[in-house]
């Protein structure tokens, strides 16, 4: 599924949805990277509120965008993470990278 994106004063928000696995991650990556290259945002927010399932392909997706944003001198935030995806994000050590939004 192609994610919805919103660009506003330097911040690009990508609203991911559905299942993120190896099959879907490839499509999301291509679509998102084209927009990042066009807009060159200073902040990239990956919003996981509507993601129902994610395997380690989602971690690859986050880390890849993290590296890409570092090239532009920008930052990545992973926001609105459902409880069911926390286990995967924490296992991957995203907490220590300071990209993961704290529990509210």
């Amino acid at each position: 599924m192609v994610p919805k994106t919103v660009f506003n004063s330097g911040r690009l928000t990508v609203y991911l949805s559905g299942d993120i696995d190896h099959h879907e991650a490839r499509k999301i990556r291509e679509y998102t990277d084209a927009i990042i290259q066009e807009k060159k945002p200073s902040d990239l927010h990956l919003n996981f509120a509507s993601v129902h399932f994610m395997d380690s392909s989602g971690i690859g997706l986050i880390m890849g965008r993290y590296r890409m944003m570092q090239l532009y001198g920008g930052k990545v935030r992973v926001v609105s993470v459902p409880e069911s995806l926390r286990k995967m994000m924490e296992l991957a050590g995203l907490g220590s990278l300071d990209v993961l939004e704290r529990r509210t």
Partner: peptide
């Protein structure tokens, strides 16, 4: 190059 995180087996073991 395919952005594989290298976590497949680690995830299987912890889940």
């Amino acid at each position: 190059e395919d952005e594989r995180a290298g976590l497949g087996f680690a995830v299987m073991q912890s889940f």
